[in-house]
């Protein structure tokens, strides 16, 4: 079916692009889920003590690494097939 409509190369390229998008998007959702809990707790802590602001912000960005992993994967996909 697919062969008849588009070439193999184009199909692979397309799949790689979709994969790259999914890698960043899903990783973003995961990081967001992680940050939501930390963010809520951090805001609570900051409400108690303003001095916690810096540390609270810092804790909040910790799960962002996950997105970076996703991004690296998408880069690799785009370099290899894009």
């Amino acid at each position: 079916m697919v062969d008849a409509l588009i070439s193999d190369e184009a199909f692979i390229k397309g799949c790689a692009a979709v994969g790259a998008g999914l890698a960043v998007g899903l990783a973003g959702i995961g990081a967001g889920a992680g940050e939501s809990g930390i963010g809520a707790a951090a805001v609570g802590a900051i409400a108690e003590d303003r001095g916690f602001l810096g540390l609270g912000l810092l804790f909040t960005v910790i799960p962002e690494t996950i997105v970076i992993f996703g991004l690296v994967i998408s880069f690799i996909l785009m370099f290899a097939y894009g």
């Binding site: 962002e64 690494t65 970076i68 991004l71 690296v72």
Partner: peptide, 12 residues
């Protein structure tokens, strides 16, 4: 290894 990859944020 993950922490090394984590430096990719400098680009991202």
């Amino acid at each position: 290894f993950g922490q090394i990859i984590s430096y990719a944020r400098l680009l991202a």
